[in-house]
């Protein structure tokens, strides 16, 4: 039974050091180099393009326009701000825009929450991927095509909705605020469904079982378990629907009739008075900042 152990084979020698290998080894060792090479492109992009654009907009709001040449005069003035804040028409436009964005958001929650719940908890595991794909599909279609499709939906005389409700003696929504809300809700619904779906997907099914096991009826389980846990996801969805609605103007142009959202006022003024348009453009930014500050405490920003 005595067998001598064979000597292990010689270790394969290290590969020859080339410049490329030395570089890789250096990058591997140096954390700073790695971060630098990773972050330089996005940081440059943000600094040069993104922030510059936003800051020039902010700055422009404090400039004025030469009334003869329409050229921007680069001297500091608060006249635009004063004008916007003292004119009730702009307060009304702001109120209307916030109202539309809020209505769109509420409608998206009302439609998106049950839909997401079905997708995440009731649909078979196999069909979930398909349902997600179906929710995303409209995002691949052109924005304009979708808005024009809704124009033919809500058109007062021969629109699909008008035709649908005519037998009941009701007229269609026509062009105006309801049409804007309907169209925007349609456009942004996927942005509401997806975060809620993701939130519900993360929630173990056993929590629903546990709640009913402890005596809670379905509605109670929804209020006491599902809603508190999915609330941050819903808020994440509202950030999308609210901000996208606040900034929209094309939908208002196509299905809004005479209704003017803040975006429309910007659109009409930028050629003649860029500082004034920039001032109006500040309003949605301020509203969104207030909104984000309010929802920051819900933990929703971690759900985006």
């Amino acid at each position: 039974m005595t067998t001598t152990l064979e000597r292990p084979p010689e270790r394969t020698p290290l590969p020859p050091t080339t410049a490329r290998r030395r570089l890789s080894a250096f990058v591997f060792r140096s954390r700073r180099t790695r971060l630098f090479s990773l972050l330089t492109p996005p940081v440059l992009w943000l600094a040069l393009i993104y922030f510059t654009a936003v800051f020039s907009l902010l700055a422009t709001a404090f400039f004025s326009v030469d009334s003869f040449t329409n050229a921007v005069v680069r001297t500091f003035t608060t006249s635009n701000i004063v004008q916007v804040f003292s004119e009730p028409a702009y307060w009304r436009a702001t109120g209307l825009t916030v109202g539309i964005a809020a209505s769109v958001t509420v409608l998206c929650i009302a439609l998106g929450l049950p839909m997401a719940f079905f997708m995440a908890k009731l649909a078979r595991r196999r069909s979930r991927g398909l349902l997600v794909a179906l929710v995303i599909t409209p995002l691949w279609a052109s924005y304009l095509v979708k808005v024009y499709a809704w124009q033919s939906m809500v058109a007062p005389e021969n629109g699909v909705l008008a035709w649908f409700v005519r037998p009941f003696g009701i007229s269609g929504p026509g062009f105006g605020t309801p049409a804007i809300v309907l169209t925007l809700a349609y456009l942004w619904l996927p942005y509401m469904i997806l975060p809620i779906y993701a939130g519900l997907e993360r929630m173990p099914d056993s929590l629903l079982d546990a709640s009913s096991d402890l005596g809670a009826r379905p509605w109670r389980t929804f209020r006491s378990v599902v809603m508190p846990l999915v609330y941050p996801s819903v808020v994440a969805g509202t950030i999308f629907t609210f901000s996208l609605s606040m900034g929209d103007y094309i939908t208002a142009q196509i299905v809004g009739g005479k209704v003017q959202m803040l975006g429309n006022i910007v659109y009409q003024n930028y050629a003649a008075n860029l500082p004034f348009a920039a001032t109006i453009g500040l309003i949605p930014i301020i509203v969104m900042l207030i909104y984000l500050a309010l929802v920051r405490r819900t933990g929703a920003l971690e759900n985006l």
């Binding site: 173990p204 079982d209 546990a210 709640s211 009913s212 402890l214 005596g215 378990v225």
Partner: peptide
């Protein structure tokens, strides 16, 4: 339904809220 049955369950993953 479970909410009207006089039994309670301890779950494998505990299912604490």
């Amino acid at each position: 339904p479970p909410f009207d049955r006089d039994v309670n369950t301890v779950f494998q993953d505990y299912a604490l809220f």
